[in-house]
């Protein structure tokens, strides 16, 4: 839930979507946005992310090759005016493959990160804030997921999802990825919960979920933002691994992960372009998300000098 969900490359929604309605006042949201805008690197990240989305969804029009087309006349050729990023041994146009892979990887990376960080935030804060049976049940669930070997579960589950849409990967990856953050969030919430401003809000009559959203989440946002940015990269890698296992994205569909995976054998050969081009897009994506995360963290944190006016 309330994590910086950067969907469709639009303005980052600070408060995100949660069980409670987002803040209507806009006072803090406006202030955070202003502080975010002052951070040059964060804006570079934001613009970069928008450009990556544009590239992923409009880049296909730059070439007449499709990701599944084979150019048997030009196999294993280097970058040229026809094949911008060269071709592999089956004559696939690497540019078309990268663009197509980007589409899925962007969606998978960002959504998995949002979902798993969101779950961690939701369950971690709820467990700590409400305490009692909530706490016991959620901690028990968290521990259960921690001890179950996720890879084994995924392999056992995979036959049920054979042939279904690749979108199913998003909840699958997120499902086994939230536990550790959730425990950290729970610990941090336990300390924030005892602070007087939370008590003050309670005596004002502020509903619990609003307190969590308005007071607790902003105060533990650093960990959630860091977790989110790390998860983007991790999700893309996990996805390629699952695809390798045979469920998720299968040929002729490609993802950035599978393209990089295929090209990784050629990284130090004269066919470097099979690896370097898709890999640099992954690096670009993660850099952009990181810049934005840092900017958002500084914008939310009044103690940082990054966001304040100079």
């Amino acid at each position: 839930m309330s994590i910086p969900i950067i969907d469709s490359g639009q303005t980052p929604d600070v408060l995100g979507e949660g069980p409670a309605a987002p803040s209507v006042q806009g006072g803090r949201a406006r202030l955070v946005w202003r502080r975010f805008r002052r951070n040059r690197l964060a804006m570079v990240g934001l613009v970069g992310l928008v450009l990556l989305f544009v590239f992923a969804f409009a880049g296909g029009h730059l070439t007449h090759w499709g990701p599944a087309d084979n150019d048997f006349l030009n196999t294993q050729t280097g970058p040229s005016s026809d094949h911008f990023f060269g071709t592999d041994d089956a004559g696939h146009d690497m540019f078309a493959q990268t663009v197509s892979g980007m589409q899925k990887s962007l969606i998978i990376g960002l959504f998995v990160a949002a979902l798993s960080t969101g779950t961690a935030g939701l369950l971690g804060t709820a467990a700590a804030y409400f305490g009692g049976w909530w706490d016991r049940a959620i901690v028990w669930l968290t521990d259960l997921f921690l001890v179950v070997p996720s890879l084994l579960m995924l392999i056992i589950l995979s036959p049920y999802f054979q042939g279904s849409n690749w979108i199913i990967l998003i909840p699958m990856i997120a499902l086994f990825n939230w536990m550790i953050t959730s425990r950290v969030v729970r610990g941090m919430t336990l300390t924030v919960r005892e602070r007087e401003f939370v008590r003050a809000a309670r005596y004002m009559g502020v509903p619990s979920w609003t307190i969590i959203r308005r007071h607790i989440l902003p105060n533990i946002s650093s960990i959630l933002i860091v977790d989110f940015t790390l998860n983007v990269g991790a999700a893309i890698i996990t996805e390629s691994f699952l695809s390798f296992l045979g469920f998720g994205i299968r040929t002729p569909d490609v993802s950035l992960g599978t393209v990089i995976d295929d090209g990784s054998n050629f990284a130090s050969t004269d066919q470097w372009y099979l690896f370097v081009f898709p890999a640099s897009f992954l690096v670009l994506l993660i850099l952009c998300v990181n810049f934005m995360g840092d900017g958002l963290r500084d914008a939310l944190d009044p103690n940082s000098t990054g966001g304040s006016a100079r």
Binding site: R28, E196, F197, A200, M204, N219
Partner: peptide
């Protein structure tokens, strides 16, 4: 301690 360090004071006063 009784003011949320991450909340502008205007918003803190407006909270009730």
């Amino acid at each position: 301690a009784s003011l949320d360090p991450r909340m502008p004071v205007g918003e803190a006063i407006a909270e009730p």
